[in-house]
């Protein structure tokens, strides 16, 4: 790069903070009638407060103690999670897949960052990172080990690429020695969810 091109058109220090730019964009959209007043705030509240991995933990806990619910979850995750009041954007077509000794399931969106928001919340940065997306379809076992999960050599790995309309949710194997009250569907089981 030549010396005359070292400065971008607007230096970073001159740009408004992201919050101000977001609010300016929101106001412009409201002024033009493209979104209603309050709509952006409602969406932000939904995204930050209601879409949460705590929902997924509730579903896992329920499936572990309630065999009928587990069956309904694996047959139709969208309908089964709705029983618990869990639904929303990016959750119109959800499929639950179950881990077993023989098969470990992994979710990725190789093209972007799609995932089941109502159950898992907005995707974490590592899920959106290019190295995760590129490597997990190529060498999941090595990548998972780097991330702290050593899978037995006899366990097959099934990677689900969220490349279309379907959003996947993995039902983990119940942890050994874990005791859960039948009434419990509290989010105490977040470990390993994301």
């Amino acid at each position: 790069m030549s010396a005359s091109h070292q400065s971008p058109p607007v230096a970073a220090s001159e740009a408004a903070p992201v919050e101000r730019r977001v609010f300016a964009l929101r106001d412009a959209l409201v002024d033009r009638g493209l979104v209603e007043a309050g709509e952006a705030e409602a969406l932000a509240h939904h995204a930050l407060e209601e879409l949460s991995p705590a929902n997924g933990a509730r579903v896992v806990a329920r499936a572990w103690v309630d065999p009928d619910f587990r069956q309904r979850l694996l047959a139709n995750a969208t309908a089964a999670t709705k029983e618990l009041g869990i639904e929303g954007i990016e959750g119109r077509q959800m499929v639950a897949v179950e881990n077993a000794t023989a098969t470990h399931n992994v979710i990725v969106c190789t093209q972007c960052s799609c995932t089941a928001w109502p159950l898992l919340g907005l995707p974490p940065d590592w899920y959106k990172a290019a190295p995760y997306r590129a490597r997990v379809v190529r060498e999941a076992r090595v990548l998972l080990a780097e991330m702290g999960l050593q899978l037995p050599a006899a366990t097959n790995i099934r990677v689900w690429d969220t490349s279309g309309e379907t959003r996947y949710f993995v039902l983990p194997m119940r942890l050994r020695g874990q005791s859960i009250s039948r009434k419990s569907d509290s989010p105490v089981l977040l470990l390993g969810m994301r």
Partner: peptide, 16 residues
Amino acid sequence: LWIEGDPSQTARVELF
């Protein structure tokens, strides 16, 4: 899919 791909791994891709 890959040269030296893991024989114990599969990918399920949603395709139209």
